[in-house]
Amino acid sequence: MTGPDARPAAWDPAQYLRFGGERARPFADLLARVGAVDPRVVVDLGCGEGTLTAGLAVRWPHARVTGVDSSAEMLAAAAAHAVPDRISFVAGDVRDWRPEHPVDVLVSNAVLHWVPGHEQLLDRWAGTLAPGGWLGLQVPGNHGAPTHRLLAELCTSARWADRLAAAAPPPRPVLDPAGYLAVLEAAGLRADAWETTYLHVLSGPDPVLGWVRSTVLRPVLALLADAEAAELTGEYAAALRAAYPPRPDGTTLLPFRRVFAVGRREG
């Protein structure tokens, strides 16, 4: 679940798993549309800390499952899920990945929004599928939400633009479902695409800030010294509290749109 990142920002598996249940739901919904019956080669590109990757081996007990990720921190956590000759984890950039053998199931969960121009990457991945193979992807589609819009405004403000403008969240890093449907069909796959908006009920102090700390805020803070990072975080937290006010019971509602696509090679 982690993608390539040119910025010097480390991933924090513990912070990412703070909302592990909410982050797992889209992966389960994606896999529900993958109809592979008994695949032998299964690859998870951007596997993160490995929990969901290990679940692929439970679903398909005869498969060899490989997780690929560029984060040393995530791979260190994923090592706890490795099983000899069944589940392995390797370091690699999804932009450069090429399999040694045709793949029966290839999944990429919450990764491709980090990769500009990933339409071409999907075309190449489709070409790695064995006859009858499946490709499934899920990407966040919430880049117009206050979480991202407010951070982009801060990064491009007079106070921060000289250092953070290039790190501002882009306005449209992913396609809509129709776009992914067209990409997979053009790659020769029978495709399906859809979107879902999840309503996550979060609790605790500044829960939306806690959510984004392990994702969109991570590369921004990596560019700042500690004091400046605290200053920006304080500004951002106040803006998030106004955009996502707590409900009467103290919880906070975070709407989160995600975009999905699956494709199958005939054979």
Rank of each mutant, 00 (worst) to 15 (best):
T2C: 13
G3W: 01
P4F: 06
P4C: 07
R7M: 07
G21M: 05
R23G: 07
F27C: 08
F27T: 14
A32M: 05
R33H: 13
V34D: 02
A36R: 02
V37Q: 05
P39L: 03
P39F: 04
R40A: 10
V43S: 03
V43E: 07
L45W: 04
G46L: 15
E49M: 10
E49A: 15
L52H: 07
L52W: 11
T53F: 02
T53L: 04
A54F: 03
A57N: 01
R59V: 13
P61E: 13
T66W: 01
G67C: 14
G67L: 06
D69H: 02
S70N: 09
S70D: 14
S71Q: 01
A76R: 11
A76K: 07
A76V: 02
P84C: 03
D85N: 08
D85R: 06
I87V: 09
F89K: 02
R95N: 06
R98F: 06
E100P: 10
L106A: 09
S108M: 02
N109E: 14
N109I: 05
A110G: 14
V111N: 12
L112W: 03
P116T: 05
G117N: 15
Q120P: 08
Q120G: 14
G127M: 01
G127N: 13
L129N: 12
G132I: 11
G132Q: 13
W134A: 15
L135F: 12
L137P: 06
V139H: 02
G141M: 10
G144P: 03
A145Q: 13
A145Y: 15
P146A: 03
T147R: 12
L150E: 09
E153V: 13
L154T: 11
C155R: 11
R163W: 13
R163D: 15
L164G: 12
L164Q: 13
A166W: 14
A167N: 12
A168P: 00
A168Q: 06
V174M: 00
V174H: 08
L175H: 11
G179L: 12
Y180G: 08
L181V: 04
A182P: 02
A182R: 02
L184G: 00
L184C: 13
L189F: 09
L189N: 04
A191I: 06
A191H: 04
D192E: 13
A193D: 05
W194Y: 11
E195I: 00
H200K: 11
V201A: 07
L202Q: 10
S203Q: 10
G204H: 01
P205E: 13
D206W: 01
D206L: 06
V208A: 03
G210E: 12
R218A: 15
P219T: 06
V220G: 02
L224G: 11
D226A: 09
A229G: 04
L232I: 03
G234W: 01
E235V: 00
A239V: 04
L240I: 05
A242S: 11
A243M: 06
P245F: 00
R247Y: 01
R247H: 05
T251G: 02
T252W: 00
L254V: 05
F260K: 01
R264D: 00
R265F: 00
E266C: 09
G267R: 00
